[in-house]
Lab assay of single mutants.
Amino acid sequence: AEKTGIVNVSSSLNAREGASTSSKVIGSLSGNTKVTIVGEEGAFYKIEYKGSHGYVAKEYIKDIKDE
Rank of each mutant, 00 (worst) to 15 (best):
S30W: 09
A19E: 02
G42A: 04
G5N: 02
N8F: 09
F44C: 07
Y60I: 02
G51T: 05
G5A: 04
S12A: 09
G42Y: 04
Y45S: 04
V35F: 03
G42K: 04
Y45H: 05
E2G: 14
V56G: 00
G51S: 06
S20Y: 07
K46L: 12
S28C: 14
N14L: 15
T21D: 13
R16M: 15
Y60M: 08
V9F: 06
R16H: 15
L29M: 05
S20W: 06
A15P: 04
Y55P: 00
E67V: 13
L29Q: 01
K50G: 12
D63E: 14
S12K: 12
G31E: 09
S10I: 12
A15V: 15
G42N: 06
S28R: 13
V35C: 06
G51L: 03
K58R: 06
G5M: 05
E67Q: 11
K3A: 05
L29D: 01
H53E: 07
V9E: 05
T36C: 11
A1N: 12
V7F: 02
R16G: 03
N32Q: 10
G51C: 07
K46H: 05
K65H: 11
R16Q: 08
E67L: 14
V56M: 01
V38E: 03
G27I: 11
V38I: 14
L29S: 00
E59T: 06
V35E: 00
N14D: 15
Y49Q: 01
G18C: 14
I47T: 02
F44K: 01
L13N: 01
V7K: 03
E40D: 06
H53I: 14
V56C: 04
Y45W: 12
V9C: 15
I6E: 03
S52G: 15
V7G: 04
I61F: 04
K50Q: 13
L13W: 01
K24G: 06
E41F: 09
S52A: 12
N8G: 08
E67A: 13
K46T: 03
V9N: 07
Y55Q: 00
V56R: 00
I26P: 01
I26H: 02
V35G: 01
I64E: 06
S22V: 08
I37Q: 00
S52L: 14
V9Y: 06
K46N: 02
S23L: 04
E59Y: 06
E17H: 07
K34T: 09
G39K: 02
Y55E: 00
G42M: 02
V9R: 07
K58Y: 03
I37C: 05
L29F: 05
S30K: 14
S28A: 10
S22P: 03
G51N: 08
S52C: 13
V35N: 01
K3P: 02
K50H: 10
A43F: 08
A15H: 03
S23E: 03
E41K: 07
I26L: 09
N32V: 05
H53F: 15
I47R: 00
S52W: 14
E40I: 07
Y55T: 00
V35D: 00
K34D: 02
A43L: 11
I61Q: 00
G54M: 14
S12H: 12
G5V: 04
Y60R: 04
